[in-house]
Design a protein around this nucleic acid. Structure first.
Lengths: 365, 365
DNA sequence: TTGTAAGCGTTATCAC
DNA sequence: GTGATAACGCTTACAA
């Protein structure tokens, strides 16, 4: 005891951290009582509990995240994003998750952070490292593809993964995924079909394919009819990586003689690429060309005409994931059966019935 | 010793964590030697060091973040974002910082995370809590305003803050800020002046004002002449909060008889609001109206004409911040004197000389 | 109901 | 150059 820690009520700027030992001393009880009281555990009299709580608050005590996670699971959750393109979703998810877990106000002091990795492989390494170092209690990951390196990493190390995505039949984390209800992509496909669009094109980022894939499935195989050749709407898929790619892809799509009557974009970049190309070619949206986006945004509402979009409320999805995440924070198994967030198809002015015939005709086969 | 830990080389899926004790046992040395070897400290023979390193790698050892930060500073950095609007910048900064700190490969395993808070006050609480809980060794924060609650929180608790923003004369963290070189905002102002724009409007988010303020200063007081009434370009500032606000603001700006000859937008939302309004009013960009954006983006490049913008490479700024952050990771004081990232004015097709007279004339005073 | 004490996995200070 | 061993702040048996 070389440093006689002050028992007084003054936390003094820049001094030592306040520990439960300080609180115990100030309250005149033992550290065990303090720990029980602070964690709401039974076995402490109400009077003592209140006294301890008051003392801790007066002293400005906060748990040491390190010391706490040394014994139990860490009280933090990581939401992963791959590349800047996914960052917006991830931060929305984090915000929703955070508010659902009531972070920032309560005593148990949970923490939601976003881990942003440059690419999938780095993300997989992050996941593995962060888990083996026990940095977080749960890892929320969106946009897992088939054969995602993160799947393998998680499976190998027993990472408490909370996948955000459509339920996957195969693979390790099958069934545990949190996803939107509402079948918005299917409804988008049906909507386009009802409008009479027989040639539909998809301009989508190379990597993440869940909604795009769902839409393709829905367009290709309406109702129960699966893979019957000739049935369903033929969809031309153009992938892009960079902004220039997107512009070039849009140009290519609309240049063809038998150009599509509807284009589906996977986000703002593809959307603007399509709109700009259409404008250049004097194609009027929606009469000459219908445009639909798979991710609603400010851009969709600001352009004219406003763009029909699938609105996926990521923050709500994050909130829904809280149910799965919470038990993980206690070191337990993942929870299940969440009240899901609902994705909707927001119909705006950019979609209309397919033009009678003209440029789009030329029945393929 | 109730659990006879296997000395064998098999880490066995799902088994206990590998600790330095395991490594020590396997390597036939004491834990102290292992610790020294793993941390590259002197006092271990080269032979032993190599042997220990190999053993640790074979066993798949990874440090426990909790145990490690129990004694020393945590090996992680938090980059803060307020609201989804700032999230894109924050993730870019995080990516740059991360790569500059070489996270993910090396042994000391630093971790860069993004903390996204719903608003400034929540962000201030986050900062205070995360610091008192010693969750991170450094906190990178962009867009601090005057009287920011985070400033107060940080000052009170001695938070190792790394502000990203123009140097501030007053306040606690004065001088330590990391920011862009290049005076891009001033150059933008000068550029507009050289083009003969006498009426300039600014459509900017309510909250974050650094680049907007800088631009306003530069426009209002060219060269050395400061606050001389009548001198400088009058700037009409319109603030918005929501997407609808932005659209309404743009409409209001361009409706007036003596409308501005140039509009500066603070980001994509404002930009699209302005472009759409201009289109609706049959104003041709850039001949009737020049448009400039304070934050370059994919949108700026995709619309036609492409939009002149201030490009601020946030990832590079994050990398520059690494110099300041690194010493903090060791528990020391913040570093200084960073090779700065450079913001540039990217001139594209949306800016042109002010129209001769016409709508814009009507000399004010 | 409360106190004592044994860990958790590191780092760091000693002796040897 | 190496090996015991005491912290670090907290949780949790177990004893009083």
């Amino acid at each position: 005891m070389t440093t006689p820690s002050r028992p007084g009520p003054a936390p003094a700027v820049g001094s030592r951290r306040i520990t439960i030992t300080d609180v115990a001393r100030a309250a005149g009880v033992s550290i065990a009582v303090v720990s029980y009281a602070l964690n709401g555990r039974p076995g402490v009299s109400d009077r003592t509990r209140r006294h301890v709580l008051r003392t801790a608050a007066d002293l400005g005590w906060r748990p040491s995240a390190a010391a706490r996670s040394l014994r139990s699971a860490p009280h933090s959750v990581s939401v992963q994003a791959v590349g800047p393109a996914e960052a917006a979703r991830a931060t929305d998810v984090a915000l929703g998750l955070r508010s659902a877990l009531r972070v920032g106000d309560d005593a148990p002091a949970t923490d939601v952070v976003v881990d942003v990795a440059p690419d999938r492989d780095a993300a997989a390494r992050d996941l593995e490292h962060a888990w083996t170092e026990r940095r977080h209690a749960a890892f929320v990951v969106a946009g897992l593809t088939r054969d995602d390196p993160r799947d393998r990493a998680a499976h190998r190390g027993g990472v408490p993964l909370v996948p955000l995505g459509p339920p996957r039949a195969s693979g390790p984390g099958a069934g545990a995924a949190v996803w939107f209800a509402g079948n918005a992509e299917q409804r988008a496909a049906q909507y386009l079909r009802e409008l009479g669009h027989t040639r539909v094109a998809l301009l989508a980022r190379d990597e993440h394919g869940e909604p795009a894939a769902t839409l393709l499935d829905a367009l290709g195989a309406p109702e129960g009819s699966r893979t019957e050749a000739g049935r369903g709407t033929p969809v031309e898929r153009v992938a892009y990586r960079t902004v220039d790619d997107a512009a070039a892809g849009a140009a290519r799509l609309l240049a063809t003689g038998d150009r599509p009557t509807a284009v589906v974009a996977d986000g703002d970049v593809a959307l603007l690429a399509v709109l700009e190309t259409a404008r250049r070619r004097d194609l009027t949206v929606p009469w000459d060309l219908s445009v639909l986006v798979l991710e609603d945004s400010a851009t969709c509402r600001l352009v004219h005409p406003a763009v029909t979009a699938v609105a996926r409320p990521w923050a709500e999805l994050g909130a829904a994931a809280a149910v799965v995440v919470r038990p993980l924070l206690g070191g337990g198994e993942a929870g299940a059966a969440t009240p899901p967030a609902v994705a909707r198809l927001v119909i705006r002015g950019s979609t209309a019935p397919a033009p009678a015939s003209g440029a789009a005709a030329l029945p393929g086969t």
